[in-house]
Write a protein that binds this DNA or RNA. Structure first.
Lengths: 237, 237, 237, 237
DNA sequence: AATGAATGAGTATTCATTCAT
DNA sequence: CATGAATGAATACTCATTCAT
């Protein structure tokens, strides 16, 4: 798992035992490992809160450490540099975005394409609504850190999932260039939902946007309109 | 204020005039105004080059000035601050993106919806291919400068244009919520084309992406598939 | 006169005649000399206005030139550097402060000491009330330009005047150390009046402060209190 | 905020502690707090030295840091900006000036007015002779930083002290307008002593100036000359 | 492991002054 | 003489990162 990999510096000198200073045995209910984990969480939480509140501008390592209630030194113990801190934040966020994907595509075979498309879109909407402001900052304001391009990897994995799903149903699709269609569909859903977080929050929450998007994608892929499942904007809040 | 006035130049040719030094027939143009313009262009060019090459990270006023071959002082004579320099770059870029829109929507009445949709998309593709890397940096990497949110204004204008076009053809559309549809269509095209600049440059250049996108949008809006105009990927390079 | 001296750079290339460009004879009602003088006045006025409005902080050569409606180049034609501009402003201001002194000490012999002391103080008050804000800025905010220490020279001249006056009346004075007394009296009056411009403007204008100060100085010098000439604060404005 | 807290140090001794490196008996003091204090003192000392040597012109944060032997970063760790550094210098200076005041006015009731006046003046002289050049720079050359107007507050406090003293002895005073008299007396003493630092250092040190000033003020306030306590300029250095 | 003081290269911006036209 | 574009050294301040304790 990537997480392991990122935390490898944590274990850098994990060989040494807790120094047991002045008290012979001091497990104190919280073995070193757990304390470490807790500290990491504190830092990540603080980082997220700062990003949400003040944008990338306010995101300085000293500030994050202070807000987390630890020293900068400690921060650097767990994250070798600013980028890695951002990276872990990104990784978790992306993991959240991806979480539902697998389940949906796993048993896509049983259902009509339209249903799967709709499910995927609704899952995307759900994920984007978890912490929209953090999402916005992470994906828009945070400079694109060269190699740590989580986004790229994330997109690749999403595309792969969709590819497997659509290739299995090739015969039902009316598109000419499947590869291009997969790309188009994946990116369209992702970017549209993403954009809507900032511009159409209501339609996102009400499900209206997911509905429209589902129709657009399904018609495009299969050539025939899906049945409208629920009336749009009947009793908007 | 000079700034306002300065932002009006779009004449980009001016360049470095033949220095006509000591020639009897004074060309009546170099004395002051043109020198300024030339300097402004030099600065903007350098700024763009630096952004393309090193991203927003490398974009420092001193570096821009140096690359432009002028002093920082000169830069600040024409741009009161870093943001304004970025702003002018943005403004020009966005103006380029919008250029074709008006013409297309102007005489949309004469043609079938499908044609206008396709024209709009192709225009978007064309604009995005002018300086793709600059486009990418400007729209992704540049921090969202508070009020100078060109992007927002730009999107609003695009949406307005599309709205006028679609409202005039309301009867031909099969969508339920026109407002939402307009939003969806506008953003989808913009973001898809934008994204493709980095990920599907070939399909963008070949026209394949525009073709697919046109189909998707048209079917979504009108409920019936348009005729495929040209075969996809017949002779890809 | 110092003024002449300061303007010597004006005449630097005054040998050349007005270049009579394109018109054989163009005195145009305003010979070069007068134009120069007018320009100098424009610049000095602008300088004073800027100092009064924005303090020394706002006092930049470019700004002064702009406000004066001339180019920086012109400013530097008449004032070799910022310091000299400030110097001339200072010189004029100080000249104003000194103006009345001579007249008063000139015929001091005819009157009682008390009257001369009072006259001198009232003259100082009058001078300080001409442009109090300019005075404040010039004497407090303007950095003490090393050699151009107008203040020093000014103080020396004032002291000299007072010395002549008091030495002539030595027998009437009750002070032990005349030299010290002269210093004390001169500086006390100057600084007190100066300070009052900012802190006791009303008492300055009403004459109350001059009255008290006169009493203080006269008693100190002669050992006997002068008659109170006018009741204090009877009908303040 | 750390700044507030930081401004409380007056302990100047701390200096560089003997580094007690590796000595068993850890002195229990160096760890953190003292290092900070020492740094702050280093910075303030350097700042004062630079002001004295080169005036406000030479006073740049980088230079101060360099002279203090610390990095700019450290300077900014303790002083949020240039003004605050100047402010602390001012605060300390003013505190020194005010130190003796309280004691003198406290038991003024026991003594004749003349004695208290003399004591106050001598105290002022003493304070002004501590670091005359720093005093001069701080009070004349340093731009009047808006709100940080220590001078104003300082004057107000001095005036208040003198007011309490004189109001208690109202019956013994021959002045008409007590308020004005208080102002005049306070400012006169302050400005005269201040001015003498630069122009009459000898008379200041010998006590002659204090003597004369005392006489002037006492006669002015009470209407009768005080006995001359010591002969003036008998044995000048 | 933790602390937090210290570092210093880097950044945006200003302004007195020059000089080609 | 006038213009104003150009210069560039200088300045206040930031922040990722290190390291002695």
């Amino acid at each position: 798992m990537l997480y392991e990999q990122m935390l490898r510096f944590t274990t850098r000198n994990s060989g040494r035992m807790a120094k047991a200073k002045k008290s012979g045995v001091s497990p104190r209910k919280m073995p070193a490992q757990d304390r470490s984990r807790a500290t990491v969480e504190l830092i990540l939480d603080a980082a997220a809160r700062i990003l949400v509140k003040g944008g990338y501008n306010a995101f300085t390592t000293n500030r994050v450490a202070e807000r987390a209630g630890v020293s900068v030194g400690s921060l650097y113990q767990y994250f070798p540099n600013k980028e890695s801190l951002l990276g872990e934040l990104m990784r978790r966020h992306v993991a959240e975005l991806e979480r539902g994907l697998a389940a949906i595509t796993a048993d896509a075979a049983k259902r009509p394409i339209a249903d799967t498309v709709r499910a995927l879109i609704e899952e995307s909407v759900r994920a984007h609504l978890i912490d929209p402001e953090l999402h916005r900052v992470l994906s828009e304001e945070v400079p694109h850190l060269g190699s740590l391009d989580w986004r790229h990897a994330y997109e690749a994995r999403c595309t792969q999932r969709v590819r497997e799903f659509l290739e299995a149903r090739r015969s039902e699709l009316s598109v000419t260039d499947l590869d291009l269609a997969i790309y188009l569909v994946t990116r369209t859903v992702e970017t549209a939902v993403h954009d809507a977080v900032g511009h159409r929050a209501e339609d996102l929450r009400s499900g209206a946007l997911a509905e429209e998007l589902s129709r657009m994608i399904t018609v495009y892929l299969t050539g025939k309109a899906p049945a409208v499942r629920r009336p749009l904007k009947v009793a908007a809040e």
